[in-house]
Amino acid sequence: MKSLKALNNPLSTGQKQLDLLHKGTSETYKPPLFVDTIEPTGHFPMKAKGVEVLQINMGKMCNQVCKHCHVDAGPDRQEIMTRATLELCLNVLKNESITTVDLTGGAPEMNPEFRWFVTEASALGKHIIVRCNLTILLANKKYNDLPQFFKQHKVEVVSSLPHFSARRTDAQRGEGVFEKSIKALQMLNAVGYGSGDLLLNLVYNPSGAFLPPAQASLERDFKKKLKDQYGIEFGQLFAITNMPISRYLDYLVASGQYEDYMTQLVDAYNPMAVEHVMCRTTLSVGWDGQLYDCDFNQMLEINCSGTKNKHIADFDLEALENRNILLDQHCYGCTAGAGSSCGGEVV
């Protein structure tokens, strides 16, 4: 399976995705504009509340090609963050108000500067999260010792495991991914992850065109199944809604489920979730240093508002802390049901 970009799929560009989100797939279906929907909550224009989390996309290269990937990542993606850009990120991390650095990709571990950067960010006393796809630990010998490296720097590991069944996990993430993911989780458990101070959290996202269930109930099921069948322990399960962008958007359109899914998102709109959406305290950095309100805006190529807030080289904390968040139709994904963020439910 190739990335949308490698296939020259129109949905590999942010503008084409936005066009589709506005025009829909038929003349008869026009969901209400998100900005009109949130206006009664008093959160429009939506303002940032600060910059507490710096989420860095270290590159779009990945050893997997997941069907729902909002990054359109894969082995054929060459975009990777350079050391020079990472140094700019480190400089920004010296701001004390930024407490957490959240490393994502692609597979961030495939960036050759990954270990250097984690070591430097750790020395700054930051809480480090790595969004590890698990199979990377087994993809090459050079990655086998990553659990020990993570432990050394007390990195919080957040890993996708869309289901406790091989069938549903492999259907979304590729043949054989479940078995490798289980082995990787056992490797992480073996060095102490999943209990005590070493945080190992899992991410559930639906492997189909539907919304996630209540997080707490699903977490109980995951814990029991993974413990009973594989002896695996983990901390929390984050239930995340699939955003109607990139590869997941392509799947929705190709399977004729786009309108049904958007209807589900719109019908499940929860004004309580608006207050707690992650973009209000997170700043997303693209592989090339460009700044965005969130990872999803990054993939839609919607830079932060404000003339100075476009690139990490021009980082201005005060300007960013007071910026207006840019919203569009995909934002229904973060306000449906109990809400959704990189840390799961928000209400």
Partner: peptide, 11 residues
Amino acid sequence: STSLEKGSDEE
């Protein structure tokens, strides 16, 4: 639909 949404699998 509901079974899948609530996290059940095919088995």
